[in-house]
Design a protein around this nucleic acid. Structure first.
Lengths: 198, 198
DNA sequence: AACCATTTATGATTTGAATCAGTTCTGGAA
DNA sequence: TTCCAGAACTGATTCAAATCATAAATGGTT
């Protein structure tokens, strides 16, 4: 979300991460600002106690892992590249220096935090309201609107596996599969060749 | 979280809200920055579709409802005073003006957003991991640490009703009651005269 | 002291997602 | 073309939280 030129101006490193490699671990200290550079790059977070819960998947142009930078806490989740990825990386103190010198950029970061908080707020209430089908629809609508910038008349081809949907919503694969079928019957989504469209 | 003097300097209004009165509605547009002034003041959010889910309860000195201000979206939840409350209220554009002129305050706001995001991230993964007892403990530990600023050796007297705990964790009252009893047996919490201590 | 609203408590039953176990499908590699 | 791993799918079973129903405790009010 920060202009790449500005990042480079502040000597941001451009690092390459191979698929499956760890970017930072759960519980470690935040030392860098990260922003996804190019290609469709996804990122997922794993949480302790066996089961995986994906906090979010991030694509080109998006930043991630900033909260611990500000809040001075350990990472609540680890981060991993799920495809080969290119990332901008900026050390913490330089990041703050950049913000200080560029109030507009700081405001943009606040916007990002705010909209992510908005998303989490919605997901939290939606997840709590059980109803697997609701959870899934909210997730799809969110990614459609906020990740792919489509409006409601467009059709989104969902590029998440059922397992990823499960990990994002806190459900089980089988439940996701069954719910999707049911949603298809209700006309809420379409499934063509196992791909989900919404 | 913003210094009250600074708020007043920017002509923030001081408004009184009676217990049970609505501060803003679900789905309405964000027009003000709000900050709780005095006394222990709680605030809760209600969501549509019947069931209540409390996004958070806010106490003296805390601000709330900022995300929609930044993200330019409608409120994902309504806000209501659960005791008589005094609030500072600052119109949106003046709020931004204040931030522009006070980078340090802006940074503080970012910190607040970030730490709330951190909390939501933890709650999200914790809620998804089912386990009512885990959810409750996480909630208690969070309020203990981040709301009341106690460290782990202190004992927190929880001032939430079982119903509020239920609404914060997405559980049912009965489940909360039963889980609390079980947690007491396991020595994770104490219950004296129906009050929970952790 | 009696009354009432709210909160806490408890037992019985239902329900639906998780779990378990196994099958089919698909696209890519050999 | 066959092979194979990963993903999607399906049915049967289990289990725990929601639900329902109802009672007891508590604090505040008159």
């Amino acid at each position: 979300m920060i202009n790449p030129d500005l990042l480079l101006q502040f000597n941001a490193e451009l690092i390459k991460i191979e698929k499956g490699h760890i970017i930072f671990d759960y519980g470690s200290k935040a030392q860098f600002y990260f922003q996804v550079k190019s290609v469709e790059v996804k990122m997922n977070n794993v949480n302790r106690d066996g089961k995986e819960f994906i906090q979010g998947i991030f694509y080109a142009g998006q930043s991630f892992g900033e909260p611990p930078l500000f809040a001075d806490v350990a990472y609540p989740a680890g981060a991993e590249a799920i495809t080969d990825a290119e990332l901008y990386r900026l050390p913490k103190d330089i990041f703050f220096e950049l913000l200080k010198q560029n109030p507009d950029t700081h405001l943009k970061i606040s916007e990002v935090l705010a909209s992510r908080l908005y998303y989490k707020a919605i997901m939290a209430s939606e997840i709590s309201s059980q109803e697997p089908e609701h959870r899934i629809l909210r997730l799809l609508d969110y990614t459609k609107k906020h990740i792919h910038d489509l409006d409601s008349t467009d059709v989104l081809e969902v590029d998440l596996t059922r397992q990823q949907i499960a990990d994002l919503t806190g459900l089980r694969v089988e439940t996701v599969i069954r719910s999707c079928k049911s949603l298809e019957k209700k006309g809420e989504i379409q499934i063509k060749k196992r791909k989900i469209f919404r």
